[in-house]
């Protein structure tokens, strides 16, 4: 670290210590003035966020971490920046507005530094430090924002999967899961969990997995189905797979997938009849075959 940077840093540290409230205040004002930059957050929320970040910046700068590493490595500052971007990512603020919100801190800082009577060279050195700090914060915030959105997408995916795999009770002691769409590993795990929990809750004796809505059955789908059947059996219940269309039966044979030991039926109605037999119940009337 050279001398001019060291002195610029100590000037900035002093400004931050003395004018913490004023800087935070000004930063909030800048964000409020540019509607979108505030991310739709209320003034008091922005204020709270600004206070936390400016305080963290002040304490980070007062420490002995080098300027280029202070944002990444000062825990309080790092967390303040990631909190800000995470909050905006969740609120659906645009990535540009999020970066600009962080970058507008530069304006607030420089405005307060301008009030110090510094010579040109001094001002330039301080501006350089401010730039490096805030740019690092901007980069971190963007990265966090992207990761935050990815997290949201993953969560929504999971919620969507939960919604698309309802377990319904068809009859006393008989449950069914109508599967619609592709059955990948993540989805089959959700199906398995939901089905097993429902079996326990309803004390069900038979679970029917209906694959009418599954477009293709390949080796991995078959494997997922087998695993589900095995888990159902470990719980002490029986499993019937229904909705095996001729095309799918053909694929199963061609791929040499062994589904022996698993009860399969063409239609959900056939499977229900089988399930009633397994539970020692009699259907009130025999289902009509087309």
């Amino acid at each position: 670290m050279n001398r001019s940077e060291a002195s610029a840093r100590s000037i900035l540290t002093g400004v931050l210590e003395r004018q913490q409230t004023a800087i935070a205040e000004r930063w909030v004002q800048v964000q409020m003035e540019r509607g979108e930059v505030g991310g739709g957050l209320a003034e008091d929320e922005l204020r709270e966020e600004a206070d936390a970040l400016v305080a963290a910046l002040s304490s980070g700068l007062a420490g002995d971490l080098p300027v280029e590493r202070v944002v990444a490595q000062h825990r309080q500052l790092h967390d303040a920046v990631t909190d800000l971007s995470m909050r905006r990512a969740r609120a659906g603020t645009s990535p540009t507005a999020t970066s600009l919100a962080v970058l507008s801190l530069k304006e607030a800082l420089l405005a307060c530094v301008a009030e110090e009577s510094l010579d040109t060279r001094g001002s330039l050195a301080v501006a350089r430090v401010v730039n490096r700090l805030v740019d690092a914060a901007g980069a971190l915030s963007f990265e966090t924002y992207v990761e935050g959105r990815e997290e949201i997408i993953r969560r929504q995916n999971r919620q969507l999967m939960e919604l698309s795999t309802p377990v319904v009770q068809l009859w006393r002691e008989i449950l069914a899961v109508p599967l619609i769409g592709n059955l990948d590993t993540a989805r089959s795990q959700v199906v398995m969990e939901n089905l097993l929990e429902a079996i326990q809750e309803h004390e069900a004796a038979v679970a029917i997995i209906d694959i009418t809505g599954v477009p293709t059955v390949d080796t991995s789908v078959a494997q997922h189905l087998m695993q589900t059947v095995k888990a159902v059996r470990l719980m002490g219940a029986d499993c019937v797979i229904s909705g095996i269309r001729p095309g799918i039966a053909q694929t199963i044979v061609q791929l040499g997938i062994d589904l022996s030991g698993i009860q399969t039926r063409a239609t959900l109605a056939d499977a229900l009849e089988t399930a009633m037999g397994l539970t020692g119940q009699r259907a009130p009337y025999a289902p009509e075959h087309p």
């Binding site: 990444a72 490595q73 825990r75 790092h78 971190l140 966090t144």
Partner: peptide, 8 residues
Amino acid sequence: MTHPGEEA
């Protein structure tokens, strides 16, 4: 990104 607490 390197988190302070997660540096290997």
